[in-house]
């Protein structure tokens, strides 16, 4: 297991996966407040000449909280796509390229192989999301004013991170099922957006991973009472997808064209 973890860390470092993901999420964290402070007002003023500062403020949520919610939305909409396509080869490419053949012959087991991928990239995504959310909080606070405490921000960063962990496990699962990186990326986006839509339409968000994201967006001082349950369900989903991935891999044949 130790060497499987080392392998994934090397993969992340040497193929710039960590860098791409960290920079993209950080970019979203910084661009959201800037958009809110500079670009959107400028755009509105150009489009609607003669608009007053008050109407503008009414139309745009020009606060720290507003920018932070904007950032969360960006991570959900754009970040999902970036993560899905940056990491879509994580398992699918390995199956396609037959790079698992020699590890299998030398005694590597699927639980360790897949587990290390989830551990390394899951940990990285949680960490990145906490850091990026904090930076977003600080930057938006500097541009506007600080109106949220740091506690809810940390909590939101964590919840967002666990939502990304769910995304990651879906990515690995689809990779094992269809063995094509791009298709796995697309299906993962569909899964993440799908659960979100289903969750809000049927009002079952708190039973789905998308509930984490919604809660993360509130930055409320006191979290919803159902949040622990949503977290537990999400982790359940992650384990379920992990198990299904293993089951699928166990049934595959290797080194065939």
């Amino acid at each position: 297991m130790k060497r499987d973890i080392m392998k994934e860390v090397r993969y992340g470092l040497r193929n710039s996966r960590f860098l791409i993901l960290f920079v993209s999420i950080l970019f979203l964290a910084i661009s959201a407040p800037v958009m809110n402070k500079v670009f959107l007002p400028m755009l509105m003023k150009n489009q609607l000449p003669g608009i007053t500062a008050e109407t503008l403020a009414q139309m745009l949520d020009m606060t720290q909280l507003g920018s932070m919610r904007g950032y969360m939305g960006d991570v959900f909409e754009i970040g999902t796509i970036i993560i899905a396509f940056t990491l879509c080869g994580l398992l699918a490419q390995e199956i396609r390229d037959d790079t698992l053949v020699l590890p299998l012959c030398s005694g590597k087991r699927f639980p360790a192989i897949v587990g290390s991928k989830l551990l390394v990239f899951g940990f990285f995504l949680v960490l990145t999301s906490v850091i990026a959310t904090l930076i977003n909080y600080l930057y938006a606070g500097v541009l506007f004013s600080f109106d949220v405490g740091v506690g809810p921000v940390l909590r939101s960063g964590l919840l967002l991170g666990f939502h990304l962990l769910f995304l990651l496990s879906a990515l690995v699962f689809w990779g094992a099922v269809i063995r094509k990186p791009i298709a796995a990326g697309l299906l993962t986006c569909a899964t993440v957006y799908g659960t979100h839509i289903a969750g809000s339409l049927l009002k079952i968000d708190s039973y789905l991973p998308s509930g984490l994201f919604r809660e993360a967006q509130y930055f409320s001082v006191v979290p919803a009472s159902s949040i622990l349950q949503t977290l537990a369900i999400t982790i359940g989903f992650v384990f379920l997808l992990y198990g299904l991935t293993l089951l699928r891999l166990q049934g595959l044949e290797w080194n065939e064209r």
Partner: peptide, 27 residues
């Protein structure tokens, strides 16, 4: 057994030493 596939595939981003270290240290 020891098996050499027709077209052995490695991780392009590992060195040969790392590859052997990775493959040799399981079990």
């Amino acid at each position: 057994i020891g098996y050499l596939p027709e077209d052995p595939k490695f991780y392009a981003w590992m060195t040969a030493r790392e590859t052997l270290d990775y493959l040799g240290n399981s079990g």
